[in-house]
Amino acid sequence: MSKKLISIFMSIVVAASLAACTNTTSNTEKKAETTTESQSDEKDKALEGTWAKNYSLEQTQKLYKDRLAKIESITKESGLKYSKDEKVKKDNGQSVNDNSIYFDNPKPEANKIESMYFGMKTYGDDLATGDITLKLSLKFDGENAIKNNDFDLGKTSFKKYIEAFTGQKDKDYSDINKQIIEKLKNGDKQVEINNTVDGLKEQVLATKECIIYILSTKKYKFADSNVSDASME
Rank of each mutant, 00 (worst) to 15 (best):
103 F>N: 08
103 F>A: 02
105 N>E: 14
107 K>G: 04
107 K>Y: 10
108 P>G: 05
109 E>I: 10
109 E>T: 03
110 A>H: 02
111 N>K: 00
114 E>Y: 09
114 E>P: 07
115 S>Q: 07
115 S>K: 15
115 S>I: 06
115 S>M: 10
117 Y>G: 03
117 Y>T: 11
118 F>E: 09
118 F>S: 01
118 F>M: 04
118 F>G: 07
120 M>I: 15
121 K>G: 02
121 K>N: 14
124 G>C: 03
126 D>G: 09
126 D>E: 15
127 L>W: 11
127 L>K: 15
127 L>I: 13
128 A>N: 12
128 A>D: 08
130 G>Q: 07
131 D>Y: 08
132 I>D: 02
134 L>G: 03
134 L>K: 11
134 L>N: 12
137 S>L: 11
137 S>W: 04
139 K>M: 01
141 D>E: 09
142 G>A: 06
144 N>F: 09
145 A>V: 05
146 I>H: 03
147 K>L: 11
148 N>Y: 07
148 N>S: 07
148 N>W: 04
149 N>I: 06
152 D>F: 11
153 L>D: 08
157 S>C: 02
157 S>V: 07
159 K>A: 07
160 K>C: 02
160 K>G: 01
163 E>M: 12
163 E>W: 12
165 F>H: 06
165 F>E: 06
165 F>N: 04
166 T>N: 13
169 K>H: 10
170 D>Q: 15
170 D>F: 12
170 D>V: 08
172 D>G: 07
175 D>K: 13
175 D>R: 01
175 D>W: 08
176 I>Y: 12
179 Q>Y: 02
181 I>L: 01
181 I>C: 00
182 E>R: 15
183 K>I: 01
183 K>S: 06
183 K>L: 02
185 K>L: 02
185 K>A: 08
187 G>M: 03
189 K>P: 06
189 K>W: 01
191 V>C: 00
191 V>M: 00
191 V>Y: 00
194 N>H: 14
194 N>K: 15
195 N>D: 15
195 N>Y: 13
196 T>G: 09
196 T>S: 13
199 G>F: 10
200 L>V: 08
201 K>Y: 13
202 E>W: 14
203 Q>T: 14
204 V>E: 04
205 L>R: 15
206 A>L: 07
206 A>K: 06
207 T>Y: 00
207 T>H: 00
209 E>K: 15
211 I>M: 04
214 I>T: 11
215 L>Q: 05
216 S>K: 15
217 T>E: 10
218 K>H: 12
219 K>A: 11
219 K>E: 15
219 K>M: 13
220 Y>N: 04
221 K>S: 11
